[in-house]
């Protein structure tokens, strides 16, 4: 089994993540990929260095005279968290190696056993992941099952967490990141050796394009 992903988020996606302009849903997939991909972690570190250099080199705008005094007055305040953390009750880390890396576990409220699957079409279970900005869901595709052929009204990002799938662009295993856009019409097929578990982000509903499957469109849109 290979230990590092072969398919990575595009450079501009990592840039948007490092710059902080990427929405929460897409950021969740990128951050979960980073947990599985030392290569992209190093890249995001470089992108943050670029952010630091741009901050260092930017023009300066004078701040109010009392701002420093205001900051100094707060230094002795008892610490309260300034950055909001995911508002999920922390759980003890699962025994053994969790399948889902952070930050995904904190969104699910635990590991894979906490996911509340619901059957969408035969062979496909889904579970919504509450997240702002776009729709994020976990998907479990039965081994060997082909997804209906579809195209996209917007961007679709997929991260494989277990098993694997193939489409015309390649073969995707744990940690691999796939991105499609409206120009791509594809039919992912899960590997035969086990269920494929993914997390997917879409910023617009999918559109089924297979001849017999158009009637499913209303179902998948929910």
């Amino acid at each position: 089994m290979r230990s590092h992903p072969h398919h990575h988020p595009a450079p501009d996606l990592l840039l948007a993540y490092a710059a902080g302009s990427l929405n929460e849903g897409a950021s969740l997939l990128v951050a979960t990929h980073l947990a599985l991909c030392p290569h992209c972690r190093a890249e995001v570190t470089r992108l943050e260095e670029i952010g630091g250099a741009l901050l260092e080199g930017t023009e300066q705008v004078a701040v109010g005279d009392d701002l420093l005094a205001g900051v100094l007055a707060r230094l002795d305040e008892p610490a309260r968290p300034l950055i909001r953390m995911p508002d999920v009750t922390p759980r003890p880390p699962p025994a053994g190696m969790p399948l889902l890396p952070q930050p995904l576990r904190s969104y699910i409220g635990g590991d894979l056993d906490r996911v509340r699957w619901r059957l969408t079409i035969p062979g496909l279970h889904e579970a919504a992941v509450p997240c702002r900005g776009g729709s994020v869901k976990m998907m479990r595709i039965r081994a060997g099952m082909g997804m209906p052929r579809h195209t996209h009204n917007g961007d679709e990002l997929t991260l494989v967490l277990a098993g694997g799938f193939s489409d015309a662009d390649g073969h995707y295993l744990r940690g691999d990141f796939a991105a499609t856009d409206p120009s791509i019409d594809h039919r992912p097929v899960a590997d035969a050796d086990g269920d494929c578990i993914c997390i997917a982000f879409t910023d617009a509903p999918l559109r089924l394009t297979g001849r017999f499957l158009r009637w499913l469109n209303p179902i998948l849109r929910t």
């Binding site: 979960t32 980073l34 947990a35 995911p86 890396p101 930050p103």
Partner: peptide, 23 residues
């Protein structure tokens, strides 16, 4: 991170370097 919190009231998901599942 502070800007994201203030402007969008979003979270910024980040990996945890101490996560046992981290590669």
């Amino acid at each position: 991170n502070r800007r994201i919190d203030r402007l969008r009231r979003d979270r910024r998901p980040a990996f945890d370097p101490d996560d046992p599942a981290l590669v």
